[in-house]
Design a protein around this nucleic acid. Structure first.
Lengths: 172, 172
DNA sequence: CGGAGATACTTAACATGTTAAGTGAATGCG
DNA sequence: CGCATTCACTTAACATGTTAAGTATCTCCG
């Protein structure tokens, strides 16, 4: 109590504390952001040494696991928006890390796959990446980690289809 | 077990599956990203209606809770990097949502505070924002939500000071 | 068959993330 | 005091996030 006396004639401090809200640092988005940043901070240096960004790495990983995929499918898998993916694929293709060829049946679609060089690059990054992941798992606890992922998945499920289809009624 | 028969002479698929790694979609960063996105998707439309981005909103909220703050402190609170904050403050100031004045004692520092207009804007956004948060809490469960935040905090703690000071030994 | 509408991407435009460099102001030390 | 360091930001440069348009194809119905 008395951690902040409502500021009487303070004089120098402008308006504040007039809008009641949850404690800022405890909002869910903030917690998720901070946690994710704590995790990614571990990986970024290693990826950077190999000339890869987080998203480029996501794409390579996704491709390594599924042979080839259409751009839209890849976007869903790597959790990237179309425009971002479009730009990144352009760059990765220029670096010969991926290959692209338009589908025969449907000229709109293009099939993307990882190249030999891409595979080679992945092979050089994967060990470090796995080691870091192992370290994180060890520090946090494998069981807790599994629990956490479980909860995150449930959270995602809880919110699925809430802000998507306008729910029930809406103006416009 | 046997969820993927190692792909025999597949024939038409390019190189893939040569770099063994965790199932991509289950990586912790991905889980955190997906969960956060699921949450933010709920808030963005409302913020957008008020002409605010997620980060601008974070800054206003942080400011509303602490009277005034130096830029560095604000960056820590709102969890933004200096350069991002610098740009956003410039814009928010131009929109008269915040005020800035350099400290007397130290000319390098500048104190940032929310303006009356800023407070007014917050007041107009807060209700919807709180309602959305309540809906999320209700869907996911208040207890589970608390548990989740607890775990996220622990995760952050587990990793604190891992990739920061180069740990123990390092070259260069 | 032909054109309206849906699809699969790509571009554009603006905001932020991320790292490096720049700038002006304090500090510390010889 | 003089000046190299450190500090607190700000700029710059490049990559991605996010929404809106644009483009080329494809589908389907009349």
């Amino acid at each position: 109590m008395s951690k902040r006396p409502a500021d009487p004639a303070n004089g120098s401090a402008p308006a504040a504390r007039h809008v009641p809200m949850r404690d800022f640092s405890r909002s869910l988005p903030m917690s998720l952001l901070r946690a994710r940043e704590a995790v990614m901070r571990q990986f970024r240096p290693s990826l950077r040494e190999h000339g890869l960004t987080e998203q480029q790495w996501r794409i390579l990983r996704a491709l390594a696991a599924i042979e080839a995929a259409e751009v839209t499918e890849l976007a869903r898998t790597a959790f990237l928006l179309g425009p971002s993916l479009s730009r990144i694929l352009r760059d990765l293709e220029a670096r010969n890390l991926i290959e692209r060829k338009t589908a025969k049946a449907d000229q709109r679609r293009s099939m993307v796959s990882i190249s030999k060089e891409g595979v080679k690059l992945m092979a050089s990054v994967a060990p470090t990446s796995e080691a870091i992941y192992a370290e994180i798992t060890s520090r946090f606890g494998a069981r807790k980690l599994a629990e956490l992922q479980e909860m995150l998945g449930e959270l995602e499920q809880s919110l699925a289809g809430l802000g998507a289809g306008n729910e029930a009624s809406a103006e416009e």
